[in-house]
């Protein structure tokens, strides 16, 4: 299987050495003796939005968790320095807290009990939620409200790198777009680096600096979305039943 290694574009010109924020070389991950990720190499720069794309079972979540230090691996994962990391796992929704008597305030105080009401209200406002929901039971929020609340919950830890695993699962189109436009705004303002797992090609084209594609067959590719996401690569990734309509407009 061909290993991929594509040097990140050096935005600051060739005269200056640019140490990547993350350097991954020959990464392999096995879970219960099954090879999930095989010999993967890529770089990511500070402030990038790297989208990890691929069909179910291709190892996207495993890659994210490996980068977060949750799984053992072979190969090299080198971070430029120690970063504060924020993580929104797949499937974390209001049902995850259904059995817990937690208000939104409690939810925030689980990660830092010194957070004041005003601090939390500021971050809730950032994602368009009113202060009044602080005393509401977390399990009583709607799906969209819960996702926005989670985003502010992760952001309040002031992460430098965000790991988002399908952050809009379970939301309708409108809810999903709200999350992504929020993310774009926050990314632009806070200069965050984002690692994003998604199936949504619109998001990939609209927001990503680079795309890393994975497939169950061991195929992988890496590069700028409109350079590498051709019908051919999508077919290799998802199978030949995939048809795409290329478009050139940007999501605002």
């Amino acid at each position: 299987m061909a290993a991929i290694f594509l040097q990140r574009i050096n935005w600051f010109g060739d005269f200056k050495m640019n140490i990547p924020l993350l350097k991954v070389r020959n990464l392999s991950v096995r879970l219960d003796n099954e090879l999930i990720i095989d010999n993967l190499s890529f770089d990511s720069g500070e402030g990038d939005v790297l989208t990890i794309l691929g069909p179910n079972g291709a190892g996207k979540t495993v890659l994210l968790k490996t980068l977060l230090g949750l799984f053992q691996y072979e190969g090299e994962i080198v971070w430029q320095k120690k970063f504060r990391m924020g993580y929104l796992p797949q499937g974390l929704n209001q049902l995850s807290v259904k059995e817990l008597p937690l208000t939104i305030r409690d939810f925030f105080n689980l990660s830092d009990k010194n957070l004041s009401k005003a601090d939390i209200a500021d971050y809730l406002n950032m994602v368009g939620l009113p202060e009044e929901i602080l005393h509401k039971k977390a399990s009583n929020l709607s799906g969209g409200q819960f996702k926005r609340m989670l985003l502010s919950w992760v952001l309040i830890g002031k992460p430098q790198i965000l790991f988002l695993d399908e952050p809009t699962t379970g939301l309708d189109i409108g809810g999903g777009e709200t999350i992504y436009s929020l993310l774009k705004r926050i990314h632009d303002k806070e200069k965050l680096t984002i690692f994003l797992v998604t199936h949504d090609l619109n998001i990939v084209y609209g927001y990503s600096t680079n795309v890393l594609c994975l497939s169950k067959l061991g195929y992988s590719c890496f590069g700028k979305p409109n350079e590498i996401l051709t019908s051919k690569t999508l077919e290799d990734m998802f199978g030949d039943h995939i048809k795409i309509f290329e478009h050139n407009h940007q999501i605002k």
């Binding site: 968790k65 230090g69 990391m85 993580y87 796992p89 974390l92 995850s96 689980l110 990660s111 009990k113």
Partner: peptide
């Protein structure tokens, strides 16, 4: 208390923290 509550919500987040 808070640590186990966080583990109940998501064990991976607890580990990362």
């Amino acid at each position: 208390y808070n640590k186990i509550m966080l583990m109940n919500i998501n064990e991976d987040i607890a580990k990362i923290r």
